[in-house]
Design a protein around this nucleic acid. Structure first.
Lengths: 239, 239
DNA sequence: CGCGGTGTTGAGACCTGTCAAGACGTGTGG
DNA sequence: CCACACGTCTTGACAGGTCTCAACACCGCG
């Protein structure tokens, strides 16, 4: 099940047999954890990173008022906190949105990668830069897109990312987020999320029921979102 | 004037004499450019990165409607597009907000760093992860903070970053952004930026005139912003 | 001396938030 | 097996923060 991760890398560049062996040696242990747990709190020292194998996690930031902002979603194949390797602590919490299975990757092993595998280092560096590109797209959404466009954009993004992970098929995928959590991603209240989803349904762009989303009209949804997957860097390039 | 850059690195980790020499060898040429120019367009292939020595630049994303979102500001000492080294093209434009001077750093030289200087590689990796941390804080601002809190937060952030660059002093610094550009950073219209600034002035938190900002009441401004500089990773740690 | 960019102000509209209540589904304990 | 609690989803009425449109002042610059 580390295949989703390898696939994510191989979408962007070739991974040699040597490198694949090194990658498979990164995980020190596999861990299962329940839903709605805080795995890592902001500010605490971290000594390993989290390679998500199954389930959804999120990076969350809070305000004192109790308002929360989900700043990124992690799906299988993603490192949720590869940036912790160089940052040494995080500026946000890592929480599980569903039951999850993940591989714990000690930072010493990543450090070894940087000492012995320069190309793989660049590829992992790219992965954190890809996270940043997603952050920038979310910033654009929150700053300039309407509620319905934001929602449509998120659904498009996840369709691509879950496709790479091998868990989206035919424009349809399991969608575990509650409307409260969707609001925390999109900077909206749960009430407005509800109304926005209804509008997307009424326009016959998506179906969403039983925690599963189906994109009914992909061109239409992409148009509402102004979605362009260029920011996901889906082309293979030597790095 | 590459000192601002070295200082920015040294705030986070030690830089050896060897590494400093390598860094000073990165810049292939120094270039001056006027204000309001687009240096790099999204999607185009990039083969060098931009080390800002003087002036302000921004990373900008557009919507078809013509609405713009500034997703990050660059100040002296920052690489505006170090992430271009692994991404190979950008998902945003790079524009100048003032007249600028910058060093052009060919990607082959950065590649050499990754082959020969693993520690320095980790430090530059950290710099892009720091960018991402700033993105996350902006995401929180746009998603959850009010207009006045967003504005206050940005002013606090720039005070810290410009302090590291050596161009902010005594809670005061040159502030070249127009109110339109401020709106593009904060997801607001220029009209509302104007009213928000007036409220900050009326509360005696800042002064802003002749393109220079002075923080009159730093604790008060930080309180309005809920500003905590932890996300800027100001402590030196071995990486 | 006129012009374009910038900053300021006012009135009204609109998108999204707030508050409240009820429906629905599911898990749990009695 | 039922009763209940709880989380989630839905809906309505109203409030409020921010946007839109418009007009005008100011100022550096050609």
């Amino acid at each position: 099940m580390i295949d989703a991760h390898l696939n994510k890398l191989r979408v962007r560049d070739d991974v040699s047999a040597d490198e694949e062996r090194a990658i498979r040696g990164l995980v020190a242990e596999e861990v299962s954890v329940a839903s709605d747990r805080t795995l890592i709190r902001h500010g605490q020292d971290v000594h390993s990173s989290t390679l998500l194998l199954e389930g959804w996690m999120a990076r969350v930031k809070d305000l004192r008022s109790g308002q929360r902002q989900i700043v990124e979603l992690s799906v299988p194949g993603d490192f949720t906190d590869l940036h912790g390797f160089t940052l040494k602590r995080l500026d946000h919490d890592i929480v599980t949105l569903t039951p999850c299975r993940y591989g714990r990757v000690p930072h010493e092993r990543l450090k070894e990668i940087t000492e012995r595998f320069p190309h793989l280092t660049r590829l992992y560096w790219l992965m954190t830069n890809l996270d940043a590109a997603i952050h920038r797209e979310w910033t654009l959404s929150l700053g300039r897109r309407s509620a319905i466009a934001r929602m449509a954009h998120l659904i498009c993004e996840l369709n691509v990312r879950l496709g790479i992970a091998g868990v989206a098929r035919d424009n349809s995928y399991d969608f575990p987020l509650t409307q409260v959590e969707l609001g925390e991603c999109l900077g909206l209240t749960a009430v407005h999320v509800n109304r926005t989803l209804q509008e997307l349904r009424r326009k016959r762009l998506i179906e969403l029921q039983n925690r599963r989303v189906t994109i009914v009209d992909r061109p239409g949804l992409k148009a509402v979102a102004e979605f362009d997957d260029a920011y996901l860097y889906l082309h293979k390039r030597p790095r």
